[in-house]
Design a protein around this nucleic acid. Sequence first.
DNA 1: TAAATATAGTTTCTTTTGAAATTACTGTTG
DNA 2: CAACAGTAATTTCAAAAGAAACTATATTTA
Lengths: 161, 161
Amino acid sequence: MKRDAQMKDIPTCQTGTDAETDFDLPDFFPYQTRVFYKCVSEAVARVYVDEYGMKPYEWRALAILGMSNSYTPAELVTLSSMDKVTVSRAIASLSKRGWLLSRSNKKDGRSRILRTSAEGQKVFSHLVPKMRAVEQEILGGLSQDEISELRRLMRKVVDGS
Amino acid sequence: MKRDAQMKDIPTCQTGTDAETDFDLPDFFPYQTRVFYKCVSEAVARVYVDEYGMKPYEWRALAILGMSNSYTPAELVTLSSMDKVTVSRAIASLSKRGWLLSRSNKKDGRSRILRTSAEGQKVFSHLVPKMRAVEQEILGGLSQDEISELRRLMRKVVDGS
DNA sequence: TAAATATAGTTTCTTTTGAAATTACTGTTG
DNA sequence: CAACAGTAATTTCAAAAGAAACTATATTTA
């Protein structure tokens, strides 16, 4: 796979050396995070796009519903870290594909209980090992200890904010 | 700051126990990456949105142009990890704000040389320490060694793909 | 050097995304 | 129990982002 050109390939020619303006984007943690995120999410997207032409939100919703036998849309919102509008659209498009069934929620008439159809579950089961494979591929250069450490540190950042 | 509800707050009720469908989203590395990324980028966005009502792409372009005295749009694309359309729009809106100046590129008539205006440089200088502060805040819970390790591991993932 | 091809940057069009308004129902209170 | 406030989900509207087409200039090649 071709690597993107790196920051260092282009000279930076600082305007001045005052402490305030001496800012180096490639060393800026949020920038590194964005590059890192893009790289990971693109690798995953290749799988569900190539295999089924799915949208990111479709995969995310299916990944959650495939695990369980019943969630409400609100639970999907919590679990997916997606907006409720996005979840609503994910449900609509997965239903349209015939991968999702819903029944009414006796406990709350405003809500409903969602579950994958047999077809949807099949798609999920087909994708899971592929997703595991990409995960391995992404983390391929890291040792088990490094993987655990990376996960731990990411969690620490999230929990701290 | 309020933490989002966590996956574990909602029972997962596995449908079956077959190896193939036994998939746990919160343990899925790309999912963790997304949650991590969102958390970091939202913290940064709060600064430039609150201070100047800037768009993400405006901040990214200014962050690069503020560092240097001259880049072409194409160099901005490489450095920012943004699409060329996005960069084009960033240039347009920063120019409209009066934060960016451009002159023709003698080496290539299709291109031009961009630099921040005095005003743009002032905004940049004002934002830099704030950005450094958020960076510290985000990484506040981590030791220096942990920060270095996190950066190293993220870079390793990016370089490996 | 004229035609063909490639590249830098912008514009247009479409898709994706989220905020705000809306609908339908639930729970609470006078 | 009727009015009111609150909540789940959807729809509508507006903003953000990318793909493809387009313009203008540069480079290649016949």
